[in-house]
């Protein structure tokens, strides 16, 4: 059986069980609204355009935050890979920061930037930057010495060697880094919006929760999950796969 067919049957079974359970009143709608109610909430949300504005607002923050974090990650990663001193000092700090969920920076960010978009973007940047840094660092350190030797015998050295050999050779790691940075940034964005201000998917989620609109809460959760997996599987995994293949790391 095709994986797609298996998946459709699986999801259909879950939704059927959920709907039947709701109709038989095995649980109260305020605890878990039925799929039809969630669907209605989503349709209303898209019809009055609130969810569309939310998506646009969230994606704008994500694009800015992720963009900045990739640039920072690239710069720091190169620095850590090239300078032993930086690696031994700054590197340990970044390793420690990487294990701190970036949302814990939000209170500080609100003090620094105010209760606004900048604070959320700051959290998104921190969410993505460190994982990108670490991947770029490993990528550059893992460039095959054979490539470097071969390039040297062909007269490449210094900046030329870096730009034409070391950098392109570490692109597979950078793609993986970008994919992980996206995943962390997306989580940080949702947490940030949930705890600060709107518009945005996270903000609408909290708003709906405050008004007891559990159907919309679940609806927004579904949107977050669907977007997360679409971007990961349709964009990043494909790019990663074709890069790995081209770079001869996977047949």
């Amino acid at each position: 059986m095709q994986p797609a067919v298996k998946r459709i049957i699986f999801f259909a079974a879950i939704i059927a069980f959920w709907e039947i359970g709701s109709r038989l009143e095995l649980w109260m709608p305020i605890i878990l609204p039925s799929p039809t109610m969630v669907w209605d909430a989503l349709v209303t949300g898209f019809e009055d355009k609130t969810l569309i504005y939310d998506l646009a607002a969230s994606f704008k923050r994500l694009a800015i935050g992720l963009g900045i974090s990739l640039v920072i990650g690239m710069g720091l990663g190169v620095l850590l890979a090239k300078s032993k001193t930086a690696d031994e000092t700054l590197g340990t700090v970044i390793l420690a920061l990487q294990s701190v969920p970036s949302i814990v920076w939000l209170p500080l960010a609100i003090m620094w930037f105010g209760m606004n978009e900048k604070a959320v973007i700051f959290v998104v940047v921190l969410g993505g930057a460190f994982v990108m840094t670490l991947n770029v660092r490993v990528g550059i350190k893992n460039v095959s010495p054979l490539y470097i030797k071969a390039a040297q015998t062909m007269g490449a050295r210094g900046w030329d060697l870096f730009a034409r050999v070391i950098f392109p050779a570490s692109i597979p790691y950078m793609v993986t880094g970008a994919r992980l940075a996206w995943a962390f940034a997306w989580r940080a964005l949702m947490a940030g919006e949930l705890l600060s201000t709107g518009p945005g998917l996270g903000y609408t989620l909290r708003y709906a929760s405050d008004f007891g609109n559990m159907s919309l809460v679940i609806g927004v959760m579904i949107i977050i999950g669907v977007i997360g997996s679409i971007v990961d599987q349709l964009i990043f995994q494909r790019v990663e796969k074709s890069v790995l293949q081209r770079w001869g790391l996977e047949s």
């Binding site: 030797k149 071969a150 015998t153 007269g155 692109i171 081209r246 001869g248």
Partner: peptide, 19 residues
């Protein structure tokens, strides 16, 4: 004292740049 283009080198692995 250093590598130079007057001496071409071929290694056991082809060492072509995959990109």
């Amino acid at each position: 004292t250093k590598p130079g283009k007057d001496r071409g080198m071929v290694f056991q692995q082809a060492a072509l740049f995959p990109w």
